[in-house]
């Protein structure tokens, strides 16, 4: 059984946004939605987090910040982009300093659209993220050598054939 789906801790970062989605994320913590009943904890610390919840788009100024937070989260991790801004840049996408959605800076696993995204859909997005998280953890558990073999078999069959031919020589 995977415990990671029962205790996802998230770190929340608000990029280039109107703060609407930011407020909705915080609304998830209130007694009305109470995400802690699923074991979700909003830690302020990327080193403790499993889920990176980003609202707002990425601009030239917060690009390195987002990257750094992402790199500080230990594996396995998923990124959830909440709100139209985080998905594509939203209303800000034409601004001179905007790079676009969060996927311009870091790999995003789940997109939650909406302006502002409702708490229900944010929770839904996190639940979708949990499935990805579990998948990633399973992938982590496979030793590197087996992973290589699997990769050769499924993704690059040509390499495997070449290798076996070389071994035959």
């Amino acid at each position: 059984m995977s415990y990671i789906t029962k205790s996802p801790w998230l770190v929340h970062y608000d990029g280039s946004s109107c703060n609407g989605c930011d407020i909705e994320v915080l609304a998830c913590l209130t007694p009305l939605y109470d995400v802690e009943r699923f074991g979700i904890v909003n830690t302020g610390n990327p080193k403790h987090a499993d889920i990176f919840l980003v609202t707002g788009g990425v601009n030239t100024q917060n690009y390195p910040v987002v990257k750094q937070i992402y790199e500080q989260i230990p594996d396995p991790k998923v990124v959830i982009a909440v709100g139209t801004c985080a998905c594509s840049g939203g209303v800000f996408h034409d601004c001179y300093n905007m790079l676009g959605g969060m996927d311009k800076a870091i790999p995003v696993d789940v997109y939650v659209p909406g302006c502002a995204a409702r708490p229900e859909s944010i929770i839904d997005g996190v639940v979708k993220g949990l499935a990805v998280l579990e998948e990633k953890q399973k992938a982590m558990a496979i030793p590197v050598r087996e992973k290589q073999a699997l990769r050769e078999k499924e993704l690059e069959p040509g390499v495997a054939v070449n290798k076996s031919q070389e071994a035959g020589k």
């Binding site: 415990y3 109470d34 074991g39």
Partner: peptide, 21 residues
């Protein structure tokens, strides 16, 4: 006035942390 996590939550947290990188 929240529902709160299950009582066994600390154990889930513990095993999760144990599996992390």
């Amino acid at each position: 006035r929240r529902v709160g996590p299950p009582i066994t939550q600390p154990f889930y947290d513990f095993f999760k942390l144990w599996d992390k990188q």
